[in-house]
Lab assay of single mutants.
Amino acid sequence: DRYEFNINGVHFTIDDAEEELIKLIEELLKRGARAEEIEEVIRRWER
């Protein structure tokens, strides 16, 4: 599934997002994580 979200006006799209990654990102968003922090999480996840 495609997952899309915005952080401070920056648009992100993840194709074939796994449910666990989506939950992790949503938790980070609730905590007010910065875009750079979430980008790093996504990079690590994709390795």
Rank of each mutant, 00 (worst) to 15 (best):
D1V: 13
D1K: 15
D1T: 13
R2C: 09
R2K: 13
R2N: 09
R2T: 09
Y3G: 02
Y3A: 00
E4A: 01
F5I: 12
F5M: 05
F5V: 11
F5R: 02
I7V: 15
N8A: 07
N8L: 04
N8T: 03
V10N: 05
V10W: 04
H11R: 06
H11M: 12
F12M: 06
F12P: 00
T13V: 15
T13F: 15
T13Q: 09
T13E: 10
T13Y: 15
I14S: 01
I14L: 07
I14V: 09
D15K: 05
D15Y: 13
D16V: 13
D16S: 15
A17V: 06
A17K: 06
E18M: 03
E18Y: 04
E19P: 15
E19N: 06
E19S: 08
E20R: 05
L21K: 02
L21D: 00
I22L: 04
I22T: 03
I22D: 00
I22E: 00
K23W: 11
K23R: 14
L24F: 10
I25N: 00
I25F: 02
I25Y: 01
E26F: 08
E27H: 13
E27P: 05
E27D: 13
E27I: 13
E27Y: 09
L28R: 07
L28V: 06
L28C: 04
L29P: 00
L29T: 03
L29I: 15
K30P: 03
K30D: 11
K30R: 11
R31P: 03
G32S: 11
G32I: 02
G32C: 04
A33K: 05
R34W: 09
R34Q: 15
R34S: 14
A35T: 10
A35V: 15
A35F: 12
E36V: 10
E36Q: 12
E37H: 07
I38L: 07
I38V: 15
I38R: 00
E39D: 07
E39K: 12
E40C: 07
V41F: 07
V41R: 05
V41D: 02
I42S: 01
I42A: 02
I42L: 14
I42Q: 00
R43I: 11
R43T: 12
R43P: 03
R44S: 15
W45F: 13
W45R: 07
E46N: 07
E46Q: 07
E46S: 06
E46I: 06
E46F: 08
E46G: 13
E46A: 09
